[in-house]
Design a protein around this nucleic acid. Structure first.
Lengths: 194, 194
DNA sequence: TGTACATCAGTGAACGCGCGTTCACTGATGTAC
DNA sequence: TGTACATCAGTGAACGCGCGTTCACTGATGTAC
């Protein structure tokens, strides 16, 4: 049954937002069009009125997921707080609403160019944001440290989620929080001056 | 046609070894039983004479992949060399023969317990190995630094592979090599003494 | 050592299910007068 | 503003392909005598 244009647009939005969460939670191959549409409160048949293919939705969903993962950091002015939140038990447990790069980075290599491009934009944006929070050094040096810090964050989250022992997971998160918090960002600077 | 028991055992081995490489290259959902058997020089029908299911093979292949990814480090006595090799352009390009944790860590959450358990063993072994290469500090402190270093390595490799810009990928690898090489392992120690 | 039979590793056709995609249809919305 | 018709968002059945799994069969290996 037909629906207002406004409502149709809202539906489309909801599909993208739902997919952005479900893909992060279950992976691109782990969730189907049918399940996404059902979760969005629609039936699968209408899908192709909104998107050319599942891949096309995946690319849009990745863009959305990247936006989501950056948004929670808005207003954070402290690298230590950023790192603590990123490496929190909460973020570790909540794949669906967490960092898209950590959740989908490993699968992205095999996805469409548009999707990889969206992810790359997200990586760049995240590196810039971390670099902005590092106070000392040239822009170039801060970006270098930001890349290493971001790598540490993504890796620690990936490891903590992959491992089947909750204690080990917590140890990894704690070790990374200590290593990549601001006091070490400082020591990185010191070492790169050597 | 029947084959020597010895040959059958070799075939089984080859299936596991092939799968260990193909899964790392294409992901668990990205490669089928048919393709694995073909690559191993057999036909798919014989598969279930060797394994109970694709999942069962995946668990064995993960164990094998973990062993592979640890073996190339044998004889390395220098943390800097370990980090350099792990974060080399070569390792970045060669998913199939590289670190199983970086290649499959993101998908492991959704796999069988046996597979996750194999991966967890691998993570522990890798952390121990890095800790052994760090010369100063208590065992506990070295393990803490090893976890952060390993996280940085896995994250940097994941990011470099995920991104669609080769220049950015190289920058990330270079930044991580600088940050997680031994001179910074030293500065980590310094900072944890603060 | 040689022979006869049982075993069983590997083959390839076939099955069945899941999932991406298509399509005829419905009925509410949008529009022309 | 009201009426008549065209449009089209969403529905649900159906299609077709890929893939994990099964199975009857083959013929070489393994074994009993």
């Amino acid at each position: 049954m037909r629906v207002t244009r406004e409502q149709a647009e809202k539906n489309r939005e909801r599909i993208v937002a739902t997919a952005a969460r479900l893909f992060r939670d279950k992976g691109f191959d782990g969730i189907g069009v049918d399940a996404i549409m059902k979760k969005a409160g629609l039936t699968h048949g209408g899908f192709y009125g909104h998107f050319a293919s599942k891949d096309a939705l995946a690319a849009e969903a990745m863009t959305r997921a990247i936006e989501d993962s950056l948004r929670w950091q808005d207003g954070l002015a402290d690298i230590d707080e950023l790192v603590s939140r990123y490496l929190s038990a909460q973020h570790c447990a909540d794949r669906a609403n967490g960092c898209a790069v950590a959740a989908l980075g490993g699968e992205a290599v095999r996805q469409r160019p548009a999707l990889r491009s969206a992810l790359t934009d997200g990586v760049r944006a995240q590196i810039d944001r971390i670099a902005d929070l590092l106070k000392d050094g040239t822009s170039k040096a801060r970006h270098r440290r930001a890349m290493a810090t971001y790598a540490g964050m993504v890796g620690a989250l990936t490891l903590a989620r992959a491992v089947d022992d909750p204690d080990l997971a917590q140890e990894i998160l704690a070790a990374a929080r200590e290593a990549f918090g601001d006091h070490v960002a400082t020591s990185h600077r010191a070492s790169s001056r050597r």
